[in-house]
Amino acid sequence: MGGRDTNIVLLDENGIRSDGRKVNETRKVTIKAGVLKNANGSAYIEFGDNKILVGVYGPRDVHPKHMSDTSTGILRCRYHMTPFSVGDRKNPAPSRREIEISKVIKEALLPAVILKGFPRTAVDVYMEVLQADGGTRCAALTGASVALADAGIPMRDLVAGCAAGKAADTVILDVNNEEDQAGQADLPIGYMPNLEKITLLQLDGLLTPEEYKECLEIGIDGCKQVYEIQKKALQEKYFSTGDDKNG
């Protein structure tokens, strides 16, 4: 964890967190599917103060060609933060952190997508973080699942993302930026609720074996809550009653 000393009270005597949440409460999550005209599928997600736009292109021709696979379609993911998404301007070139996050998100989505039917093609997932406030990889993963479904990519399940962690010696759900910087542990989780499979898991910070178990349980529960919002976003686009003429 960051190990930074701050004056913020992460958890007050009533068990309320710095942003007013209870320990087992997620931030407010809103997702809208199909927000971009050109992309084959897209989603906009607000996860607390995180704002992320995801566009999916494909299945389409692979460039460079040598990356293509004759037996299956391939998945490519890019997680990227815009320079204005954080306090100090971020260099727009991909950092090592972004390269790693792109990789873990790709490996979190791979168990969900079925690309066997699209040999020699690629599905490209572009996640653009417009504003970051802790937990962007989970939010980006959540949005990416919705965008893939919106693009009509065959999927076994949606992957929902939510982090668990520890701050002020207490296990908490959905770690925000302050809690990430000054807290004790951050355990981002990607989960497919229907298949009961964890497809993204990382940890930094110290957890006892009991806390690890507790974090996994509370995190999976958070993912299930996010999953309902993902499904709702897709239902709103594809099964709305026709009130929305653009829908």
Binding site: V104, I198, Q202, L203, L207, P209, L216
Partner: peptide
């Protein structure tokens, strides 16, 4: 893990996933 037997860092990778029970077993 550290000398006290606590978990301090973790990274999942590869194209598949884990069940909850498998993750508990892996930590042990």
């Amino acid at each position: 893990t550290n000398s006290d037997g606590n978990v301090v860092a973790l990274q999942k990778g590869g194209p598949g996933g884990f069940t909850y029970d498998q993750l508990i077993k892996c930590a042990e």
